[in-house]
Amino acid sequence: MQPITPTIRVEADDFDLQAEIDALTAGRTDIGAVVSFSGLCRGEKGTLSALELEHYPGMAEAEMTRIAELAIERFSLMGLTAIHRFGKIEPGENIVLVIACSPHRQAAFDGANFVMDFLKTSAPFWKKEHAADGSPRDWVSAKDADDKAQEKWL
């Protein structure tokens, strides 16, 4: 079997979910399951005007690639795409995309879940909130729940 190379992108631009799925499945007849996760910016009941996503250029791509390769190996995935945006992102807009492909559904579900759990805790991105009323807001705090979600795979 050919080694699977993940598609990893860190970009300011939005992504097209269907185009990314098509890129993974075009011409393939061995993929039986495609699971995608999209993370969107919440408006927090109108109080948030935007999130500003900062990242560590170079390390962000490297860390996402490392996580993706772990997932491909662990779940024998047939295709994996992970895209994370940076810059100013408004409520309703996309932030992150993970797509995992496998012959059967469980590996694709687990692979996408694994990548998201590790991405949250170890990919170097930080969110800053901008309030709708212009009042000063701060950096989003890391959540214990995210650490616990990652630890369940160890």
Partner: peptide, 26 residues
């Protein structure tokens, strides 16, 4: 050099050292 390390890691040979808060992406 763009890889996570613990606080007891020696810094000898480091070209670049990044300092940041816990990550909140995704």
């Amino acid at each position: 050099n763009q890889e996570h390390v613990e606080h007891d890691e020696p810094i000898a040979g480091a070209r670049e050292i990044g300092l940041f808060p816990p990550m909140t992406g995704g």
